[in-house]
Amino acid sequence: MPRCSICSKPAIAYIRYQRKYLCRDHYIEFIEDKVRRALRKYKMVGKGYRILVALSGGKDSSTLLGALAALRSEFGYELVAVHIDLGIYEYSVKSKMAAEELAKKLEVPLIEVPLSEVLGTTIPELANKGRRPPCSVCGMVKRYITNAAAVEVEADAVALGHNADDLAVYNLKSFLSQDLEAISKLGPKTESVEEAAIGRIRPLYLVYEKESFLYAYLKGLPFLHEECPFVDHRQMEVKLKEVVNSLEEERPGMKIQMMSKLALRIKDYPKPQGKIGRCKYCGLITGGDVCSFCRLTKKALGEPMGPKVREYIRSKALKLGLIPRRL
């Protein structure tokens, strides 16, 4: 029976690109060390930072919050989590339960934003009324609300659970369509725009999807392991993930190399053109006069809902004692 390369206990994982076996405890340490190195190398956090963690309830956000919580005292940052109840039937009910359980277990304050309460609607309805595909509406709504929450709680960074597999796939997809501006957004972190957008960090930049699953599983962190009912298996991302992983099987470490090199070259990619402005309704970042969220909600619900979302989050943050922020 293979033994852990560090302590000789029975191994539960083999890290092919490092040719080492690990037991449960050293596996957990291995992943936390990857996150630690990414936080340091890419200067993602500082002492006294308030990090807002976007919690979907899935394995990656669970691993993200778990690893960040484990490194909390070492780096001296504070964690706040936000969960958006998207109203996608049973899937959202279960996601919410997992997010609540996780935040409680790790003692992280959780801001919950149920769309049915804040907007009086859900993602499927909003997509229908706005005549847009649900996945595109969902992505935009999540980005908007997460950023709005970060602005309201005066966070220094938003942490996202994108793993190396996700990013490798988006990198390839953008490359295939020569959307180089999209690649410029796939680095380990993005910068803030004062009072309008909070910079995003990706602490799982070098963590593989399977590693993320095993970490959450072995650590006993609550997470929902289900697919959203709207996932379309014909999507290019699904095919590209297979391609990336068959390459990884032949060339162990390929995904890490791709991400490390992308981080080095990210500045060479062209940034999206156009001015950065503020939405005339909600005041948050936009490329025009009105942000995508206010535009969609105005079209679908008859009213730009950005200000209401911000007000809702503010009142939740007040109740949780998160604002005014004491530095």
């Binding site: 979907s56 309830g57 899935g58 394995k59 990656d60 899937y91 996601s95 996945c135 969902c138 992505g139 996202l160 659970g161 994108h162 996700d166 988006y170 957004k185 796939l186 999807e209 399977k210 699953f213 929902l224 392991h225 289900e226 697919e227 959203c228 709207f230 996932v231 991302e237």
Partner: peptide, 11 residues
């Protein structure tokens, strides 16, 4: 046998 997957679109 667990198929490791992401819930939905993330970027």
């Amino acid at each position: 046998i667990v198929r490791v997957l992401s819930g939905g679109a993330k970027v």
